[in-house]
Design a protein around this nucleic acid. Structure first.
Length: 268
DNA sequence: CGAGTCCTGTGT
DNA sequence: ACACAGGACTCG
């Protein structure tokens, strides 16, 4: 479910409540939520102070310290994960974190795809990700795009190309830039590449301002829904008229993911 | 590049 | 009963 804007919204809703608190205990109700040994992870986490809650692409990153030693905990929400502050655990609660001062964080995850991992050093998986879409500058983006022959949709979903785009925002950005999802990245000229860079930034920023996209399950740390679903133009709109030209939006499958585009505005 | 896997819930 | 779902890994 959550892509960059949703994870950013979760981070903003949690950080003020967690920064500076100490982890008293962590319980994994579904042990496979934890990459690595759940008992050892819980033991390592107990007593850690949360120095900062951040975001790296779609990952939430907790910077921790105990006895003067830094460590890291990342959480990936995958399709249906939610982190909820001070709520009762329910049937879909996969993990729970208890903090100093009576604060708790429940990890609710219907499909059990979400993952937590603790590490002493900066996590390798995060180090392998591409740049933040809201930080990379246009010229750098254009150069990186020109080096890849992959289809645009598949490339935008590749977290080593850019970290944070998922199925909704990849489709929305390609629509805004008027680029066909199956077009090869290297075939896109610098002018259109710059338009895509701007489209990505705009759609992500607008969604963050709207608190993310809530289609089914997504809510922030306080349980609030976002409302960017009211602003999407192609995602989930197969058969509906295109906002630009009124031709029906088409749904195809690219890289095993449903892909929505306007066949008239987004030519190959 | 595609297919299969991890999972549960919802809608047709 | 079947298709589909904001993700990402592993395999051939």
């Amino acid at each position: 479910m959550p892509e960059l804007p949703e994870v950013e919204t979760v981070k903003r809703s949690l950080a003020p409540h967690l920064d500076g608190k100490t982890i008293e205990s962590v319980v994994f109700y579904w042990p496979r939520t934890c990459l690595g040994d759940p008992d050892a992870t819980s033991a390592q986490l107990a007593g850690q102070r949360i120095d900062q809650v951040g975001r790296h692409g779609k990952y939430l990153l907790f910077r921790l310290s105990k006895h003067g030693r830094d460590s890291f905990l990342w959480i990936h929400l995958r399709m249906t994960g939610n982190l909820l502050l001070n709520t009762r655990p329910g049937p879909h609660t996969r993990a729970e974190m208890f903090l100093s001062g009576g604060t708790s964080v429940v990890f609710h995850d219907i499909r059990k795809f979400g993952k937590w991992q603790w590490s002493r050093d900066f996590p390798e998986r995060l180090a392998q990700l591409g740049p933040e879409p809201l930080e990379i500058d246009a010229e750098d983006f254009v150069r990186r795009l020109a080096r890849r022959s992959m289809r645009l949709k598949a490339l935008l979903l590749d977290q080593e190309f850019l970290r944070g785009l998922g199925n909704i925002y990849a489709d929305e950005a390609l629509f805004r830039a008027k680029l066909h999802p199956e077009r090869s990245a290297a075939s896109v000229g610098p002018r259109k590449a710059r338009a895509l860079h701007k489209a990505i930034r705009d759609v992500l920023q607008e969604s963050i301002s709207a608190g993310g996209t809530s289609i089914n399950n997504y809510v922030d740390g306080q349980g609030s829904r976002g409302y960017f679903q009211l602003r999407t133009q192609v995602y989930g709109k197969a058969g509906e008229p295109c906002a630009n030209c009124a031709s029906p939006v088409r749904r195809i499958v690219v890289a095993q993911r449903s892909t929505h585009y306007c066949p008239r505005c987004q030519r190959r």
